[in-house]
Design a protein around this nucleic acid. Sequence first.
DNA 1: CTGGATCCGGAAAGATACTG
DNA 2: CAGTATCTTTCCGGATCCAG
Lengths: 118, 118
Amino acid sequence: MDTPTLGYCIEAIRPLRDALDIVNGKWKLQILVALRVGHHRFRELERVIPGISSKVLAKELKDLEQHQLIQRTVHEGPPVLVKYDILPYAITLDPVISALRDWGEGHRKKIMGSAVEA
Amino acid sequence: MDTPTLGYCIEAIRPLRDALDIVNGKWKLQILVALRVGHHRFRELERVIPGISSKVLAKELKDLEQHQLIQRTVHEGPPVLVKYDILPYAITLDPVISALRDWGEGHRKKIMGSAVEA
DNA sequence: CTGGATCCGGAAAGATACTG
DNA sequence: CAGTATCTTTCCGGATCCAG
């Protein structure tokens, strides 16, 4: 009754780790949402994602590209323009994003409610 | 066609941020899964969550407790035993965990497939 | 002006040892 | 067993700088 759960736990956790390795950090999912909503340029993303810095944005975009979630396209200018597009594979993350968003909404309401006590 | 999406994006991202603020990092969800599977003690969690250090585990447990996702109970000894239990509110995170786990499984298969090319 | 790179400082994560 | 102290390393954010 105790040994089975030990190995089982690793089993249950492993796919979670695989997903978190890609999606981890507070920015990647936000970037994907921004891309889906229709923002494609670097400065634009910087503007619609409050608090992100250009340095972090650049790094996250590279990570996302490396994981084949987005695509970077350079339109040789002048002026040189760079466009970021979401790839089909990133769409498969929609359930994850939806689940998080739903929970976030519920949590906000809960916080508001108990904030009356504080 | 451009202005509406600008405000809309912030709207879409905000609940996501709320959720990520709580669930952030790569450990919290793993800890919740381990607790659900039936591991309640500090060392036990350390063992079933590969790679976590005692310092980080201690900090994450405090965070989870503060957010009312888990409960810490001290059984005065000797020896002193501490038990961590998942609270009902943490169960509401199940859809998030399931979505991530499902995606993680699919992603692993995809990686395996393209690993043939590498 | 856009798309970044680089430097710097503080914060957080990791590894390990040690204490009650 | 349940953590903390300590040290090292990595990450994060801001500001600045640069090329086109």
